[in-house]
């Protein structure tokens, strides 16, 4: 109920602002936008664009979690590797999206690879550092048990290290799922050939502002729903870590 009231309040403020500005080139009214939204939802082109953005998003998320966890795990276990790789990862983290954009356009031109690589490189450092921090903060008391009972390394890796990083992998997913759609849309906007970001770019070129807003609503709704579903799924899997 409170959510609905909040949404209605948002639409009301939007309507008032649109009326005050009086220009649908800057801010179309909610009615104009919802008309454009219905029009967009009826088009197969929008559905294809949505699917293209969705697969890229989930692909990037999977890749970020997988590779980020692997690299973070190695960096967390081995201090020397941590010290060597940390500056590299920090540099990758600090590079602006626009610089990656120049690189991928030189490499591949317009296409799906650019948005995927840019999104991947934008999110990978978070995953690496979160996992490495998890491994480095492993309970020292548990490691004393390992020493006292001379537990084989295989077991220590499986039961202690992998177990310890689960909350941090979940944290990575929590952070990344919220950001991945934004990054994908921006990179599609800049160098994609398909996807919601590309449609937004075209709508901007035709100065079709209600359509820009309508596509944004689709992207926001998809982002929120996918975030909620993913978090619920991951938390159910990790209930025994006491995180739910």
């Amino acid at each position: 109920m409170k959510t609905i009231v909040g949404l209605l309040l948002f639409v009301l403020v939007w309507e008032i602002l649109a009326l005050l500005l009086g220009s649908s080139f800057i801010l179309p009214t909610p009615v104009e936008t919802f008309k454009a939204l219905i029009h967009e939802l009826a088009k197969i082109e929008t559905f294809h664009a949505f699917l293209s953005t969705a697969w890229k998003g989930f692909f990037v998320l999977g890749l970020v979690v997988l590779l980020g966890t692997l690299i973070g795990l190695v960096m967390g276990i081995n201090t020397v590797i941590y010290e060597i790789l940390r500056p590299v990862v920090m540099i990758v983290q600090a590079v602006p999206v626009i610089s990656w954009l120049a690189l991928v356009i030189f490499l591949w031109g317009i296409g799906w690879k650019g948005p995927v690589l840019i999104s991947f490189l934008s999110l990978l450092p978070i995953s690496i550092f979160t996992t490495a921090a998890g491994v480095r903060s492993i309970d020292k008391d548990l490691l004393e048990i390992v020493k006292v009972y001379k537990i084989p390394k295989r077991k220590v890796f499986k039961d202690i290290y992998l177990g310890s990083i689960v909350p941090f992998v979940v944290a990575t997913i929590d952070i990344s799922i919220g950001n991945v759609w934004k990054v994908i849309l921006v990179s599609e906007f800049l160098c994609g050939d398909k996807g919601l970001g590309v449609l937004i770019s075209w709508a901007r070129q035709y100065v079709d502002v209600p359509r820009v807003y309508a596509l944004t609503i689709i992207a926001v709704a998809f982002g929120i729903i996918s975030e909620r579903l993913t978090k619920r799924f991951v938390r159910r899997l990790t209930r025994k870590w006491g995180m739910s």
Partner: peptide, 9 residues
């Protein structure tokens, strides 16, 4: 040990 030190998961 003074505390149980069990693997929580």
């Amino acid at each position: 040990f003074q505390e149980p030190r069990l693997i929580p998961w």
